[in-house]
Simulated scan of single mutants.
Amino acid sequence: MPGRYPEWYRERRSWELGEDARATVRKLRALVSERRHVVEASGRPDGQAILGAADEEIDCAEQTLTFDEHRRAPLGSHVTAAQLHLNTARLLWLKSFLSSPAEVAPYLPGLLAVVREHLARDDPRRVATEVVMEKYAHRRAIDETDLVVVLESVDVAYSVTLREKLRAGSFVRIVCGVAAFLFVLAAGVAVLTAFFPDSVPLCFNPSRQSAEPATDSKVPYAIVCPTASQGSLDSTELDQNFAAVTSWGDYVVVEIVGLVAAGVAAASALRNIRGTSTTYPVPVALAALKLPAGALTAVLGLLLMRGGFVPGLTALDSSAQIIAWAVIFGYSQELFTKWVDRQGQRVLESVRGPLDPPTAAGRTTVVPAAGPAPRAGPASSRSADEEAEG
């Protein structure tokens, strides 16, 4: 039982992906071993060297996936590194077929899918791969030169995939860093205002016509703060009256209310999140950013109202109104964090591959699979017209 917690700690956030990588290791070992028997029977020393390099990459991937031997804390980056070695091993295994390219035919649709998934439509390597696949669809044969073109495009696609995953990891670290800074900033504001509550009070001075009647007050207004209010004031100085009513908990209450409102906004934003299959928690980082942002926007919004920035709302009548506006301002952090949410969604989508530009009708153009083009005829023309109308 004592070892269960360290085991969970080592495998958090990456257990499923790690098992998938281990299964890929076993699969590639079997494929390389089977291919080695064929190459040894043909007596090709260059093929044996390529398969030897593939074995070394598989060993590196397996060592990276072994937590006890890995030099870094296994938070998920070890899975990405293992996938890098496995992709290289897979490419080396495919290059061992250069002397007999016809044997790669069953794997060509999968290779084309990888290229289309991770390279842009106008990428010359993707275009060249699609040309090769079109020729293959017509002549049902592929030579060594065409196979090299396809494999090089797949190699570039794997590199693009790695860069996108690293970009996702960098995005998560940046967002978490900003969220931590805002948390510290919000905590610092709460601590400073608790020690100096009358420096910048979150209080308002509505006239007595809208406040509780106070016959013994020396001024025609009341003081309303987030945690207290008073209508009977002994001084004619506004600052002294503010200092007499304000409390150390004013900013704390407003920040807590803003944080709760931001938490509700973050929960409602989950409806637009489709999750991610990567080891980088982009949605969690985006949700964490909203919490301190809501606490700070609640404070800043009330300060703007107190300074007369919003005409007609310069004097709130009760503490309940102040708390209500703190809820609104805390929720309104969505106006600022929505741009970060959009960038996070783009980062998640780019991990899968480039986004094709939409067509004039607002739909994404889909590249058809390689194969002979259909013959033009009345039926096909009618279908094209129906698609245009749809």
Rank of each mutant, 00 (worst) to 15 (best):
T193S: 11
I174Y: 08
R167Y: 07
F196Y: 13
A194G: 15
L185T: 11
C176I: 03
T215V: 11
A187Y: 01
L162N: 11
L162V: 11
P213R: 12
A168R: 06
E164D: 09
K165V: 04
V200E: 15
L192Q: 05
P213F: 02
N205T: 14
S199K: 10
F204E: 06
E164G: 01
S170T: 10
A190S: 11
R163H: 12
A168C: 06
Y158Q: 09
T161P: 01
R208M: 08
A211S: 15
F195L: 12
G177I: 00
D198E: 09
F171R: 11
C176P: 01
C176W: 04
A190V: 07
A211F: 11
G177F: 06
S199L: 14
V172Y: 06
G169D: 15
G188E: 04
V178F: 11
S159L: 10
N205G: 03
A211I: 01
A211G: 14
V191K: 02
P197N: 07
V191P: 04
F183P: 01
R173S: 09
A211W: 08
L202C: 12
P213D: 14
E212V: 08
A190C: 14
A190H: 02
A186G: 10
V178L: 09
P206S: 08
E212D: 07
D155M: 06
L185R: 01
V191D: 03
Q209W: 04
K165M: 06
V178Q: 08
L166S: 08
F181M: 13
D216N: 14
Q209V: 11
L202R: 08
S170V: 01
E212Q: 15
P206D: 08
V160Q: 13
R173E: 07
L166N: 13
G188Y: 07
R167P: 04
A211M: 02
L166P: 01
